Simulated scan of single mutants.
Amino acid sequence: MSRISANGRRRSHPVVAAAVFVVLLLIAALLVRHYVVQPFRVPSASMSPTLQVGDVLLADRTTRGTAERGEIVVFNGRGYFSSASADGDRYWVKRVIGVGGDRVTCCTTDGEITVDGEPLEEPYLPEGTAPSEIEFDLQVPEGHMFVLGDNRADSTDSRHLLGAPGGGMVPVDRVVGEADRIVWPLTRRSAL
């Protein structure tokens, strides 16, 4: 039942107004999640110490489909890093080491990974961790990326899939977004 105000216009019922408000909020939240940011929970220690198990991070959806060296990205690994039936392992978070055209090699006599012949500086690696125990020398195909976890001793990443379909390379168009910040727990809240 509508009410009529003093000026003769109909006023909507408060319950209807609240319902419309809630629907608009839900639509706005869905749009933000699809186009702006999307939350993800870190399930493993593969990115430690940068990301810890249980951290909730926000992926910047405005950067989807792009990747630059050094970025931490969330990507859809289905068919590359996980089987099509393993929906729980669909999304992965790793650091981009090489992009299309880069030659990535492990390792120099000093044990460093090189990108296009230049040693890769990796201050994010846990102390005492080797850049890689697996040797490789590869060219990243155009439109793809080579990714590694920061915790190389406990990370399934491009190195482990070199002989698999796709050769461990993930198409850049699978990037959901760049990991922008940790939002939970509050004690670890920070930009990445």
Rank of each mutant, 00 (worst) to 15 (best):
T63E: 06
P131M: 04
S5G: 15
Y80C: 00
A19K: 02
S132E: 03
L148E: 08
G101T: 06
G88R: 02
E178N: 10
R64Y: 09
L58W: 06
V36M: 11
L120D: 05
V183A: 11
L58P: 06
V74E: 01
Y124Q: 14
L186N: 13
G177W: 04
P43Y: 03
G54L: 13
A17W: 06
Q52W: 07
V36T: 12
V172D: 07
A179I: 02
V176M: 04
G163R: 12
F75G: 00
T187C: 05
Y91H: 00
R188L: 09
A191D: 15
N76T: 02
E68T: 12
R64E: 07
L26N: 09
H160D: 04
L161H: 08
C107M: 04
N151P: 06
P165L: 10
L51Q: 02
N151V: 02
Q52V: 10
P131W: 03
E118K: 12
T109V: 14
S132N: 04
P39R: 03
V16P: 03
L57N: 07
M1I: 05
S5E: 03
D110Y: 09
G168M: 06
S5V: 15
V93G: 00
Y91K: 00
R64T: 10
E127Q: 10
I97C: 06
D102E: 04
F136Y: 02
V42D: 00
T50V: 08
A6H: 07
A86M: 03
E127S: 12
L186A: 15
Y91R: 00
A59M: 09
R11M: 11
A28M: 08
S12H: 10
E178I: 13
R78D: 13
R10S: 10
D150G: 09
T114F: 12
L51Y: 02
T66D: 06
F40I: 00
